[in-house]
Amino acid sequence: MTHLVGPGDDQAKESGDGPQAVAPEIADAVERLTNLWSLAAQGAVLRLSLHQLRALRALEVAPGLNLTGLAERLDIGLPTASRLCDRLEAAGLLERKLHPHKRREVRLSLTAHGRHVLDDVAERRAWALGAALAGMEPDEREALGRGLRAFLATRTDRAPLPGDVASDG
């Protein structure tokens, strides 16, 4: 078993482009991107909370989810998911329909207005990101694209935390 490097370990002080040396720069970029993402969404036709946007996005990706499925996808409790859906339904962004074969199950789906709001948010985010990328040189954008593709190919959902122990495989 190998001890993974933690924040206080001497081994963590890598030089150059090692993972621990680049991590703070990437963390800063993620924070700036999150702010850009959030600000772009706030200018949309309808201003929604992060939870509301995530719920609409979940229904866009998996139409017909029931309340339990939505709660699981958002990692929230059923009562919270129900109140969230109440607000989204009142705003005309989602609708509840009885399942055609299971009378006690209610399916959730986006309304045309809900799709319009998501499209507006996506368009604003793409524009804001494009404007930020315009400040980079073409070769920098290409390098960023290559790096992001490589990052997405890793199993970031299982990334170890400082102090975790992993096997050598």
Rank of each mutant, 00 (worst) to 15 (best):
L129S: 09
Q11N: 06
L152Q: 12
T34E: 10
A134H: 10
P63F: 00
T34F: 11
E105V: 02
L129I: 14
L152V: 09
G169K: 07
R107Y: 06
A153C: 09
A90P: 05
S38H: 14
D86F: 03
E105L: 06
L133M: 07
G6V: 00
S49F: 06
D119H: 15
T154M: 13
A55R: 00
D28E: 11
D157M: 04
G163L: 05
T2A: 04
Q11C: 01
P160L: 03
L148V: 15
E72M: 09
A159F: 12
S38C: 01
L56S: 06
S49Q: 12
R103V: 00
D75R: 15
D139N: 08
H101M: 04
Q52H: 12
I26F: 09
E72W: 07
E72I: 11
L50K: 11
L4H: 10
P162H: 06
A122P: 00
N35P: 01
E137N: 11
L110C: 01
G43C: 05
P138D: 14
R158S: 07
L88G: 06
R125S: 09
P100F: 11
C85S: 15
G169P: 03
E142I: 02
P162N: 05
L108E: 08
G8M: 03
P160M: 03
A166L: 10
A21G: 02
P138Q: 12
L36T: 00
G43V: 02
L36N: 02
V165D: 08
